[in-house]
Nucleic acid binder design. Sequence first.
DNA 1: TTATTTGCAAAGCGTTTGCATTGGG
DNA 2: CCCAATGCAAACGCTTTGCAAATAA
Lengths: 150, 150
Amino acid sequence: MAKQSAGAASGEGLEALLARRLREKGLRATPDRMRIFRVLARSAEPLTVRAVADRLRDDHLNITTVYRVMELFVALGIVHPVIVGHEAVGYELMAPFRPHHEHFLCAKCGRVVDIYDCPFEEAVAALSRDAGYEVTFHQMEMHGVCQACR
Amino acid sequence: MAKQSAGAASGEGLEALLARRLREKGLRATPDRMRIFRVLARSAEPLTVRAVADRLRDDHLNITTVYRVMELFVALGIVHPVIVGHEAVGYELMAPFRPHHEHFLCAKCGRVVDIYDCPFEEAVAALSRDAGYEVTFHQMEMHGVCQACR
DNA sequence: TTATTTGCAAAGCGTTTGCATTGGG
DNA sequence: CCCAATGCAAACGCTTTGCAAATAA
């Protein structure tokens, strides 16, 4: 079922938003960049550079381009890196391109479960208020055993 | 309140604990492994393989050994990988070798601030109780601007 | 003693870089 | 038209691997 609405507008709108963000910085909304964005938007989990390139092999997308676009997206705050298993770094869209969520990694089946109903907002807000930290982004990573595996 | 005592005994005891954990698995508590452990224990922040090797250059520690020991420590749950800046993967001791804490990354000064007074325990416990996830480890990563930089 | 661990050097491979070409605005 | 972006291939450097020597238990 779709948890959509939360923070992300629908597909079309997000691409327009990305294009605007790029142009604001004097950068171009090229076909390659939009393709890479779409691949990330479709994926249910973080993708490595390699994974993105693989999914765009038919479009003759050079992997060097993926590296460069990914670096750009990180710098622009469009994606952020997350450690997938024990080492591999993957990239994932962040708000407002994708609704905020936390990660739960199951030690048994190895799956990464996204938890959209973030129960930490309150505590993070409190930290901003009381401890003087201005938190603009947060991400919780939890390890353990998922429902299905117990 | 100080969550100290929680799991981490003082230096000496931790090394003994590490040695025991290794031997339990039929592995050896070699000088190199203990040295690497000590370097991690002394560090205030996550260290890359390279950083560990650099700090042990005087001991003629081969970097290949550091790679192998780090891989072992990850497998044994003695350290865990964290993304440091925008990419680099560093390693950090985890409980009970180091008290549990969260990370706050300041966008201005770039420092990584450790937050020991974890305000998320409650919510994590609730998730375990109510949603059926058995959480054995969690780590929050927050980005923003720290007190000093505001 | 003996299986584990380490050092060394070579191989492997993911990532970066330079430069000419293409193409978006 | 101009400068950003891409493709290609070479360069780089991090990480892994094989094997012989060293060593913890």
